[in-house]
Each structure stands twice: as structure tokens, then as C-alpha cells.
Simulated assay, not measured.
Amino acid sequence: MRPRLFEFEDLPWFPAVIRSGMMDYLRFMISALRIYQPIVPLLAEALRRSGQCQLLELGAGSGGGTETLWRALRTEGFPQLRITLTDLYPQPAAWADLAVHTHHAIGHESRPVNALRVPRELVGFRVIFSAFHHFAPRAAESLLHDAVQAGTGIGIFEGAGRRWWEYAAAWTVLPLAQLLLTPFFQPFRFSRLVFTYLLPIIPLCTIWDGTVSLLRLYSEAELLALARRADDTEKFAWQVGKKRHRWGAEVSYLIGWPK
């Protein structure tokens, strides 16, 4: 069994200002690198198969990559696509910025939303980007089971892997990029500068959480096993696999929809 070390951003007592700074960094990098571009055709097909035209994003953080994904799906036959962002620790300032950029096609739920027990009034094909590893196996199974019970499709996507160069990047290239790019993150926050340069808590916590995230990632076999346990009556059709970027990075995915 792989160790399940803690991540700072999961801790209830962790200061919101530091969590927001870390989420802003992830949002910038995921969007700039277009991490989830390779899975756009897969997600478009899942929407068609499930009869959905709306996404419900769980564990959305600051919404990294969501606007890029929304624009890409609009060209894949979903011009009226709407996305609702949710999180156990909502980021309303970052989400409001996304709403403005997309003419409110990307909205959000202001109250905290537990991905294991999603309120039934929150509808749409459920998606999780770069966050499924936060859930231990039993919780991950419950998350999938909740989607099956609700009769909605679900897509799990992780834009990283457990390869040596990804660990090396988490300790070297990415922290350097964070130090160089922080002044350009939007929306601007003075606190982000303070806790990046004067007291470098944000970059240090980001290095720790990034390393632990890589250790926690589920393999394709583990994802499929979780899905089968969550869907023991075989109500859903499931797909699992990886899609590769032109520059080498891989996106692992688990997608399911009602048969």
C-alpha cells in the first residue's frame, strides 16, 4: 500500500488565504498548459451518451482549466454548455472572475459541497479535475457510488503521473515558475505576494502538497476496481485509460454514464 500522507489544503484549520494562494497557482498552470485539452473529445462523447448539456464540477478549487475546457467543448457541439463549480472550501472570488469571462456560463454554488453527498438539486454530468487523489479509497468509492445512485454520469481526470521527472519538476521547475509568475495571477491579491515572497508559505506548502498528490494518484487498475465496487449492480458503462499531450504529459481518466 502507498502511504497516504496529508495535504495542507485538505486540513479544515488551514488558513483560507494560503489555500487560495495555492489554488490560484494551480489554476494558472493548468490553464496555461492546457492540461486537459486531450480529454475534450472523451468528455464530449460522455455528455452525448448521458444526454447531458451541463457539467457539475466537484472539488473545483479555483477552477483551473475550466474556462479553457468550456471553450473547447463549445466547439465540440455544445454551444450552450453551462458549468457549475463546487467545492468543500468554496473560492467565490476566483469563481466570480470566471463567470465574468464566460458571460456567466460558468457559475458556482456558494455553500460548501461534499462530493460524497452531492445535493440532488445540483444537476449535471459530474467531473473532477486534479482532485480525485484527495479521497482515500473508501471515500473515493462513496463518491462514485453517489453519482451512480443519482443516475448522473461522472468523469475523473488527473493531469499528472507517478514518473520520476514529474517528481523532479514538482521540486524544481514548478516552484521556480511559481516565484516568477505569482505577480501575474488574477484576480490580484496583495496577500499572495506577502505569503510567497516575504513569508514563502504558499510555495513551500505547494511543494509538499504537489509531492503528496503524486504519491496518492490512483492507477488505471485501481480506478476501475473502485468503479466496479461503487457500481455493483452494473448500472453504468465505464471507460478508463490515459491520453497523452504532445509535450509528454499524460491525463489519466475514468468515465462512466448510465447504460
Rank of each mutant, 00 (worst) to 15 (best):
S110Q: 14
A115R: 02
L98E: 15
H108N: 06
S142T: 14
P119I: 05
L144I: 04
P112H: 01
F132E: 04
G107Y: 04
A140C: 00
H133K: 06
L143W: 12
H101S: 14
G124I: 11
V113H: 01
T102L: 13
V100L: 15
L98Y: 08
H104M: 07
A131S: 15
A136I: 12
R138Y: 04
A115E: 03
F132W: 12
V123G: 15
I106M: 09
S130V: 10
A99R: 09
L122T: 02
S142Y: 05
D97V: 09
A131Y: 04
V118A: 11
L122K: 02
R120E: 10
R117P: 03
N114W: 05
L143R: 03
L98V: 08
P119C: 11
A139T: 05
H101Q: 09
L116R: 13
H101L: 15
A115K: 11
H133V: 03
A140F: 00
F129W: 03
R117K: 11
L144F: 00
L98G: 07
L116I: 03
P119Q: 08
V100P: 02
P119A: 10
A115C: 01
P112Y: 09
E109R: 06
N114L: 09
V123M: 13
G124S: 07
A136T: 09
P137T: 06
I106Y: 12
R111M: 14
L144T: 00
R111L: 10
H133E: 10
H104C: 08
P119G: 12
H104P: 02
F135E: 08
H103M: 04
F125W: 11
H134E: 10
R138S: 00
R111D: 08
F135N: 05
I106A: 04
V118F: 00
